[in-house]
Computed example of a mutant assay.
Amino acid sequence: MLLRFSATSPFVRKVRIAAAILGQTLEIEPADTLDPNDTLRRQNPLGKVPALLTDEGEVLFDSSVILAYLDFLAGSGRILPLDPKARIAALRKEALADGMMDAGILLLYEARFRPAEKHEPRWLDHQEGKRTRALAAFEADAAPFDGTIAVGDIALACALGWFDFRFEGKWRADHPRLVAWYEAFAAACPGFAESKPVA
């Protein structure tokens, strides 16, 4: 299987960690999402990473779809629980973490692609509000890491790691329970250190 990737994408990191947990080997090939000539746009019409080219010739995209596929290949129930209640809880956690990452990426893009005098404060406040509320929700629900790793845990850890990378870890000061969970997760999770984003 071939993973089209960016070394800084938290969504790509989700896939790399899941593969490490599940003992699956992925070839990786960088993709330039801004280059109209990159084959990524033919592989994924959205022109986004991650995109996974399966051994059957299919292209899967969106990290949550790829994680579900990798779990299926591993026999199901490894990172995506089979129990319906636990499965919904894991997917809900993944969705909130993914949304938090989306908001962070939109904040980053506003700074990267628009000059400061054209920044829209209302838009920035809207995205920051998503991040703030999601972090508060995760902090309220944070429990000590118990060794369980499901799709929602992977997504949350990738979001927090990306916030360390892109926003200087400013989330940490107000979220001590989440910091404790994250540090324990990072120490225990296969592939976590190796997939750390690099500029």
Rank of each mutant, 00 (worst) to 15 (best):
S64Q: 11
F72M: 13
D98C: 10
R92H: 04
L107E: 14
A97F: 02
L80A: 08
A103C: 15
G77S: 12
A74R: 00
P81M: 08
F72S: 15
A74Q: 01
P81F: 07
A111K: 10
D71W: 10
G104E: 06
D102M: 05
E58N: 14
V59H: 14
E58S: 12
A103W: 14
L82R: 15
D102E: 12
E110Y: 10
K85N: 06
V65G: 10
K85L: 10
A103T: 09
A90W: 01
L106E: 06
L96M: 10
D62R: 09
V65H: 07
E56I: 09
I105N: 10
L80N: 02
L82W: 14
G99L: 06
R112I: 07
F61W: 08
P84T: 00
Y69F: 08
I79K: 15
S76K: 08
F61G: 11
S64V: 02
E58P: 15
I79R: 12
K93I: 01
G57Y: 13
G99M: 15
F61T: 05
R92D: 02
R78Y: 04
Y109H: 07
Y109P: 00
V65C: 12
E56F: 15
A68T: 08
L96E: 03
A111G: 09
G77W: 08
E110L: 06
L67C: 01
L67S: 01
D71K: 11
I105P: 12
M101A: 13
A89D: 01
L91A: 07
I105C: 05
L73S: 08
K93Y: 05
D83K: 12
K85C: 12
I66C: 04
L67R: 00
F61L: 12
L70H: 00
E94A: 04
L70T: 01
G75M: 06
D83N: 11
Y109V: 14
P84N: 02
A97S: 05
G75T: 07
V59E: 13
A90R: 02
D62V: 06
A95D: 02
D102L: 06
E58H: 13
I79Y: 03
Y69S: 10
S64T: 07
P81L: 15
